[in-house]
């Protein structure tokens, strides 16, 4: 594959043809915050947390291919303020009770809020109350904690070949739909499916494995999300 260089945060970095800005940045040890992106899936471009400035214009780092004419900034005060706002709005759009959630400490939404120093969301909550679907023997879906990243949708389609999940509705009424009207238990979702464990929050969770990791040993207890990418550079 053809190699080329582009400017990332003021220095020349190498990228391969076809790589997105986000992939090229990962390779160069520069972490761009992201939520709906997952390295094993096609990029969705849903959450906009990975927004960067490309020659002064805001663009999605996960869907925009890198190119040799680009001058990209990923870590400006303005961009981080956008990101913090997106995270804060996701917190008040759902019902995120961190103290009682089994995903707490391993949750990517929470980890991003930690990274941006959010003490508490200051917007009024939307107070939607979607019911929990626990009809599946091994997995439950709690849409109170869903951030509509679409990872389960993509994982089920691309990795599991099943298309158990989909997005339905528009705007504020968008929600994760199932391919059965009789609940998660009547879908083809299996415990070992990629879709069952790819959720960044506690919305789609395996049963009977919660709260096993002690406080202090969970993914984001000690180091911020993205540290593993930034470490690669050294």
């Amino acid at each position: 594959m053809k190699k080329f260089t582009f400017v990332l945060n003021g220095r020349d970095v190498e990228a391969l043809e076809g790589q997105s800005i986000l992939e090229a940045a990962d390779g160069a040890g520069v972490y761009i915050p992201r939520l709906c992106y997952h390295k094993d899936l096609l990029p969705g471009g849903h959450c906009r947390v990975c927004s960067v400035k490309v020659n002064g214009k805001v663009a999605n780092a996960c869907t925009m291919p890198a190119a040799d004419w680009m001058v990209v900034d990923t870590d400006t005060e303005e961009l981080n303020e956008y990101r913090r706002l997106i995270i804060e709005l996701l917190f008040v759009e759902g019902n995120h009770f961190c103290p009682i959630c089994e995903k707490s400490g391993d949750c990517e939404l929470q980890a991003l809020a930690y990274k941006f120093g959010m003490t508490a969301p200051l917007w009024p909550t939307l107070s939607k109350n979607p019911p929990v679907d626990a009809s599946h023997p091994d997995v439950f879906i709690d849409r109170n904690r869903c951030v509509l990243c679409g990872r389960c949708v993509r994982a089920s389609r691309e990795r599991d070949g099943k298309s158990v999940f989909g997005l339905e509705g528009r705007g504020i009424r968008t929600r994760i739909a199932l391919d059965s009207l009789d609940g998660l238990g009547m879908t083809a979702l299996g415990r070992n499916d990629a879709a069952a464990t790819i959720c960044p929050t506690g919305s789609l969770v395996l049963k009977r494995v919660g709260f096993t990791t002690p406080y202090g040993a969970r993914a984001y207890d000690k180091a911020p999300i993205g540290s593993e990418i930034e470490k690669k550079e050294e």
Binding site: C101, G105, A113, Y114, G117, D221, P224
Partner: peptide
């Protein structure tokens, strides 16, 4: 000013 390890929601 709270450092990274001091901001926790649980």
């Amino acid at each position: 000013k709270l450092g990274y390890e001091l901001i926790k929601y649980d």
